[in-house]
Design a protein around this nucleic acid. Structure first.
Length: 496
RNA sequence: GGUCCCAUCGUCUAGUGGUCUAGGACGCUGGCCUCUCACGCCGGAAACAGGGGUUCGAACCCCCUUGGGACCGCCA
């Protein structure tokens, strides 16, 4: 970067608020955010709410909440495109005056007929430029007559191609003759997306337009707008799309909640785990790293690592084992089991509170115990919610009893109604409550009565934790404590 | 239909002419560990879409075919 002054990077995420924040949009936001952070630039949020019909306040709020939850904080905005209508109209006026645009009086019916005719004769349809060469007199007459008109952009009449270098896809070429004189202003004077979006990007001094690949086809036309307006061109970078296993674009309509960011929040995802997963869906480094801290990801990120082929969100509806892409769950589990306990703790607090099994003493007098407990059980958890479900028995006496576990490990052995209370009495007399003393008590009991050790151990686990699986039994007992353990063992007969 | 883009294990991908009998991760799977389930560790199955070139040599370069996707609104 020596020899010239690096321009201050400004990027934006510009969603239209017509639904919740979905993972494809979130990924685009993440890439923009990473690019901004990487280059000490500015990340701008712009809500493109000019479609009043479909835009909703709920949706705007959902996008804001989703981005905040993910940690994708913006430096400027949110700006609202609807606030810039005048600037868009002025730009159109400017284009009209400079001869880069013209008024088109063709009616929708006329255009529709031409389009159908083109399709019928298997010709590619493109506006035939009927109004492009209207004389000033004709234009004045039509206007006088009150004939409504749209404003169309005048594509340069050249044989060459428009070429631009996409930072992800490389050189993209489009012949001028293949581009239609597109509409930039409706007959009611309101601007269209292609214009609004470009004008806003110019006004926001965006240096890098990082967006989904569906914007690739719009780019040549927007470049033409930039040029006609005399604006400096930004760099363009298009991201591959996220498809489902049938290679369809993911959408709420066909995929439901699983593609919304909110879903992952509710399912017990750590926001950074989702960010990490999404960043990897279509981007990679050339080494084998897949787990990145925030700073590591910022340092490693580069547009060059973005792949050009669409990536598939590996989700199978109705999968009994995986409620979303298995890799996403795997990454979430990885963070849960490896992150520093003091960072994990607040997330656990939240789910326990939501399940109404949180106790304020967990953070005061019982803090050491609380941390040990989290540390003990997190190894086999995949989501934060597991702490409140599979882990409930460690935090509260109000825990669910897994019916299969009960059936298999307890109800099959009626003698447990006597054994477990007897064992409880013996354990109550223990002077200390450690791995060694609890194990000795149980092993002695087993030896005295000649019980199969697995039978008793599994039964104890089920009665005490409500689960057939979990950490080593004695570690469980030590963590759960003497009082709770013995009380639950004594309670065994009521389970029958 | 037109224009543009893409193509390595099931999925995310490494790979930019020789080091590729194609590497990693998730998932699947065999084993070890073990009171259970995980974790962990050690293994396994699993891919260069097809065909032509170019080259001493091609996953990598070129062409064609096939397949997939995007865009083609007075939506954004």
């Amino acid at each position: 970067m020596k020899g010239f002054v690096m321009e201050q990077v400004r990027v934006r995420f510009a969603p239209s608020p017509t639904g919740y924040l979905h993972i494809g949009g979130a990924r685009t936001a993440i890439y923009n955010w990473l690019f901004a952070k990487k280059h000490n630039g500015t990340f701008i949020l712009r809500i493109e709410d000019t479609d009043a019909e479909r835009s909703t306040q709920d949706s705007i709020q959902g996008i804001l909440d989703g981005l905040k939850w993910l940690g994708m904080e913006w430096d400027e905005g949110p700006y609202f495109q609807s606030a810039n209508l005048n600037a868009h109209r002025q730009a159109a006026q400017l284009l009209l005056e400079s001869g880069h645009a013209y008024k088109c009086f063709c009616t929708k019916e006329e255009l529709e007929a031409k389009k159908e005719a083109a399709i019928a004769s298997k010709q590619a349809y493109k506006y035939d430029r009927t109004c492009r060469n209207l004389s000033p007199e004709e234009i004045a007459r039509k206007e006088q007559a009150g004939i409504p008109y749209v404003v169309r952009f005048k594509i340069p009449d050249m044989q060459e191609s428009l070429i631009f270098n996409d930072l992800v896809y490389g050189p993209i070429e489009r012949k001028y003759e293949d581009i239609e004189d597109f509409v930039i202003l409706r007959s009611d004077g309101s601007p269209l997306y292609l214009l609004s979006n470009a004008v806003d990007d110019i006004n926001d001094r965006i240096t890098h337009v990082i967006r989904g690949q569906d914007g690739l086809a719009n780019t040549p036309r927007q470049i033409l707008i930039y040029k006609a307006l005399g604006a400096k061109l930004p760099q363009f970078a298009h991201m591959p799309l996220t498809l489902d296993l049938q290679k369809r674009k993911i959408s709420k309509r066909t995929h439901g909640e699983v593609v919304s960011v909110q879903f992952y929040r509710e399912k017990g995802f750590l926001p950074w785990a989702l960010v990490n997963f999404l960043a990897l869906l279509g981007w990679h480094t050339s080494d084998d790293r897949e787990i990145f801290s925030k700073q590591e990801l910022i340092d490693a990120f580069s547009l060059e690592g973005v792949s050009r082929s669409n990536s598939i969100f590996n989700y199978t509806p109705g999968d009994a084992k995986f409620f979303t892409d298995p890799k996403a769950i795997s990454i979430n589990a990885h963070y849960i089991k490896t992150m520093p306990l003091n960072e994990l703790e607040p997330w656990v607090n939240a789910v326990l509170k939501a399940a109404d099994i949180f106790d304020e003493t967990f953070l005061t007098t019982q803090k050491a115990w609380y941390y040990s407990t989290i540390d003990l059980i997190r190894q086999r958890f995949h989501t934060l919610n597991d702490f409140a479900t599979l882990g409930a028995a460690y935090f509260s006496d109000n825990f669910p009893m897994d019916s299969k576990a009960l059936q298999k490990n307890v109800l099959k052995h009626p003698q447990l109604t006597e054994w477990l209370p007897q064992l409880a009495e013996r354990m109550e007399r223990l002077d200390s409550w450690t791995l060694e003393t609890t194990e000795k008590a149980v092993r002695d009991f087993i030896a005295e009565r000649n019980i199969a050790s697995g039978t008793l151990i599994n039964a104890i686990r089920t009665v005490v934790t409500g689960q057939s699986v979990g950490p080593g039994l004695f570690e469980c007992l030590v963590i759960i404590g003497k009082d709770r353990t013995t009380a639950r063992l004594k309670n065994t007969p009521t389970l029958f």
